[in-house]
Design a protein around this nucleic acid. Structure first.
Lengths: 223, 223, 223, 223
DNA sequence: TGATAACCGAGACGGTACGTCCTGTCTTCCT
DNA sequence: AGGAAGACAGGACGTACCGTCTCGGTTATCA
């Protein structure tokens, strides 16, 4: 996010973006990093405190001690701000940790458990809100899926591929892994998004056991 | 909806009150059924045509040829209206059809396929919008889960129970069925809500095969 | 108001008014006098309690325990109701009392004082409200002037004529009396309507003395 | 209204505050004078065209090509807008013009005639509407009397004092002048507000002659 | 002694305007 | 040039009454 030359790159394209060198004799102050953080934190706090519906650009501006126009200069909507917070906060929480010292089953289970726990954290709330809003607004859906969700799915596929390679010393093609990820994460997201009930340990274990079993079937290995 | 005596039964609770008999000698005009339908249809149409964000009470009122106050008299928000349309339209589309002439696998697969198709229909769009909004507003979440989703889950559990009974002549306890339903529907909802990509036939088949296999394991039968 | 035959005559023309005989075979109940009084009192009370702006047909109906439609059946607006209360209450308060035992000056002064006091009473408040509303709505102005104000002015002219006859044994023509009444009442109404300050005794005395002096001038007597 | 430095002085109190100097370094846009005038003219026009009852904030906004919120930012009601137009338009029409070349009687008569004519003009209609509304709403009454009417009365007292000084080289105390003004203007306002009939020349002449006669009485001079 | 027609309560309905809130754009000034 | 302050056009919100319109229930005559 922070480049060597000290300028900031928003997730969004900085005006029309000069990719290589910013030689342009820039005068006046550059984008203030403190403003950026103040806005992201204000948005995050307000979302958790009051919920998405009560989250307004004006509210964020006031809370962050920033002018409305300043927000519009760098983000094009409140959704855009939240997308920015996601990138900073959620990636780490959902990463796959290869722990060689533990068995494959246990590794998978503990990853799923981490996913389950993530939904309780603020960053998880942000993701849920964005997923919710994506159902209501196709532009949000496009941004979210082209950005965070796409990257996260790549990480999930890579993570699962590595794990299965450790388990059976075999590689799966992408289509198969795609399905396995759906089967793995689907029930968890379903619980959170649809049922709204907490993800219990049993669901985590059943799911991971089932997917592993499926992966080990000969028919899956040779699709 | 229309009872024999000509009075109207709103899907929504008739002013809290009076569980057994409405003794209060009600005089004056009754609720107009035509108004009710005009509003539900207007809301449904506008949602599909223009999306949730562009769905406003004023827009619905205008489209339905109805006064705004009339809407507020019977529904407390646009979400409330959508909840009403759901009850009328979605139940049938998601019901389990016991087709004795076909095998258990095929029955399950075709039910899942019907669920997948449902999301393409207007009523499915309404459900998705409501699920989306439920992530943003806890009151919506509560209404949706206490109403439609609760009933639908009961139907799903009953449907699955009947199917498995036919398959193995065994009964499963509710907790187990709960999990099986999560595993069965989770991947489908995940695809629609998170990935946003259409549900392909392969996912439907894999999922139903997998869940059936799990149900047939001795460890599942005797939990 | 109450006729011999028991039917009621609203100040307003009863439907299209059959002045002489109501031969139309009337069956069913006649207008309820209790309803009429309940409405007039409710309107009066609410006007004094909450002011004209807060006076609504629905409020009057509720206060009077009467259906809105019942009000619309007999009066065509809240102003119409207030006009009705005026006729009942204000006439007496503003009548000229010929007290032979007292001097002309004293009689005139005490009449003006009674006018001044009238504005403090509920009925006076109603008149002020109607005069106010007459500035805003020409229909109100027309009704008020064609009804109460016209009658009152006739009483005022007659009263002044009698008094001056007693004073000088002379008769004045109507044009002159018209002007004298304007000069007599103008300052009082000006105080109440424009200044909003109470009418002090000095104004009452100066005014009556002045008008009497004018009336006694030879130039006035022979215009 | 427009100061040398280009800032605007609303007739209405600038957010309570700062009697002497506005030190608060105000940045950002200032109030748009063109908006202010557009609103005042729209209100004035609509009042004359359609009457007070049909005068709505939304109508004014539309006519002025202005957002409703912009009106609410600067005025708190339609009455507040009319009060503003009064200050701009009525002061001049009601001022006392000392014309040394003419006699005292003639000066007084011509002033009264100007008052009479004023009621026919748009600004006079505004004053009548406000006086009417003041009878219905005590807040309007308070604003009107504390603002325009108070200043106007001061001008009237000063005008009459100067005129009488020219006539008799005597000064009158304020209480006496107060009464004289009531006697002078009362009949005119009574005609307009109560009778609703036009002010004829005779009333103007009689009134001014009468008041002048009273002022010349020794008893008035030495109260 | 019904029949029947009006009165009356209750309140749904299509409307209009209210006053508030937030949006996204803009202008102005300050640093 | 960046940023604060905030005015502005716009549009939806949810509320309050308006005046009209059914509904049933209830009388008080007249057949």
């Amino acid at each position: 996010m922070r480049r060597v030359d000290g300028t900031i790159s928003a997730t969004r394209k900085p005006p029309p973006a000069c990719e290589k060198t910013t030689v342009v004799s820039r005068t006046g102050p550059r984008r203030s990093e403190s403003v950026r953080l103040a806005v992201l934190h204000a948005a995050d706090d307000l979302l958790v405190e009051r919920g998405f519906a009560a989250l307004t650009i004006e509210g964020i501006a006031q809370r962050a001690g920033v002018a409305k126009q300043t927000i519009y200069r760098w983000w094009k909507s409140k959704v855009d701000i939240l997308l920015d917070t996601l990138t900073d906060d959620a990636r780490e929480a959902l990463e796959w940790r290869a722990d060689e010292s533990r068995g494959v089953e246990e590794t998978l289970t503990s990853h799923l458990q981490r996913v389950a726990d993530f939904f309780e954290e603020p960053a998880g709330q942000v993701l849920l809100a964005l997923l919710g809003h994506a159902q209501l607004d196709s532009e949000t859906a496009a941004s979210l899926r082209a950005g965070f969700l796409k990257e996260q799915r790549e990480r999930d596929i890579a993570g699962l591929r590595d794990l299965l390679a450790r388990d059976q010393d075999l590689t799966f093609d992408d289509r198969t892994l795609d399905h396995l990820v759906d089967l793995l994460l689907g029930p968890l997201y379903y619980r959170v998004l649809v049922s709204g009930s907490p993800i219990d340990k049993e669901l985590v274990e059943t799911t991971s056991r089932l997917v592993l079993a499926l992966a080990r079937e000969p028919s899956t290995r040779n699709p």
